[in-house]
Nucleic acid binder design. Sequence first.
DNA 1: CGTTCAATTGAGTCTGTTCAACAGCGGTGG
DNA 2: CCACCGCTGTTGAACAGACTCAATTGAACG
Lengths: 214, 214
Amino acid sequence: MCSAIDTGRIDALDRIVTHVQFRPGQTVFDEGDLAPYVYNISRGHVRLFKLLQDGRRQITGFLNPGDFLGLAARKTYAYSAEAISDADLCRFKVTELEELLTEMPPVRERLYEMANDELAAAQEQMLCLGRKTAKERVASFLIGQLRHAADCGAGDAAFDLAMSRSDIADYLGLTIETVSRTFTALREEGLIGLPTTHRVSIPDVAALEFATEG
Amino acid sequence: MCSAIDTGRIDALDRIVTHVQFRPGQTVFDEGDLAPYVYNISRGHVRLFKLLQDGRRQITGFLNPGDFLGLAARKTYAYSAEAISDADLCRFKVTELEELLTEMPPVRERLYEMANDELAAAQEQMLCLGRKTAKERVASFLIGQLRHAADCGAGDAAFDLAMSRSDIADYLGLTIETVSRTFTALREEGLIGLPTTHRVSIPDVAALEFATEG
DNA sequence: CGTTCAATTGAGTCTGTTCAACAGCGGTGG
DNA sequence: CCACCGCTGTTGAACAGACTCAATTGAACG
């Protein structure tokens, strides 16, 4: 429950946590909102994104169970967050969490590491968005999803996508059509299998990795 | 000197610091190198970037005097760093810096904030790379440079670019030619002035800001 | 004053977009 | 049970923005 806060102190956390639920597409918070809360995902998936005035959207990341949400926020959130699927989140008041944190310097250090990991991921994504072709972007995305599925213990090189083609497009800086075409191109080349629209199998991981270039 | 470490303890820092100099184009460190050092820039500018196998480059950021370099590193650097101009850097051994840090929790907190600021910048850049047009990207870049120049006290809406067109292109996910063409287009529209190739004036900041969209 | 490298400009090409039609699938209600 | 609807995803054809390749201009430096 509220997995991932390393050791002990679960009791202290229990006292300040609120459980909140979201339906697919529901907003957790919007960019620019005051940021009184931090969340941890116990079930479901969340997308983080930024919008331009005219509605163009860039998804900056997808969150999975165990991930934190809103940690980076200073006074206001720097991005919007929506549930992709049905999701259960644990909500903490930042102020109360801060109190606990000052008692636990190692946790603070852990948060710092997490921020750095996120930063490294963001830089990798910049490389993807700025310099990779559509095919390379989709391949990179799929390898990333595979890695995540592997961490979660899925042995076989196959996994389900929690997000729609539209989400993938907005994550990779492409259009839905290009993502769809690239999926079928990869399938026709034998680099991936698509048992259903939201399930992907990867017969030869090394081959797909090669298609990501860098 | 080694500006920007908030308060006191300059003496302690002095004991563990080494001053290193770099010529334009010189490598500070490469992606994947072991990361024993953290740097602070006392003079000059540095570019951070990642490469693909075939040489395609994505610049993830430019650093200015006062900025830190290599903080985010875990065991190895996640990106390469090169001096753009002549640069003086203060070098610290991570291990020694860590010792000081444990004595100074507020500094650690400050580092965390800095990482979060970097993360927010990275997300803004993702929006730029994934969803903005060439013109919008260049406009965003120029506004960013202007903001930085303004922070440094330049009152007028004009500033010098520390980096080449090639660096700008690799930062914005464009080619040199497109950057150049976009500069002239913005000039012909009266949105910017170009007294010299490396100097930009912005007669109407709001107008240029409008050209950045989002 | 010539060399060299960076930046600009031009012409043609291509990758990915746009616009549009169609297929698949789940849900709903007659 | 199945026709209808709405939504997501796929496919096709034409278009456009940025790229590639090439030539020219400009600026810095010896």
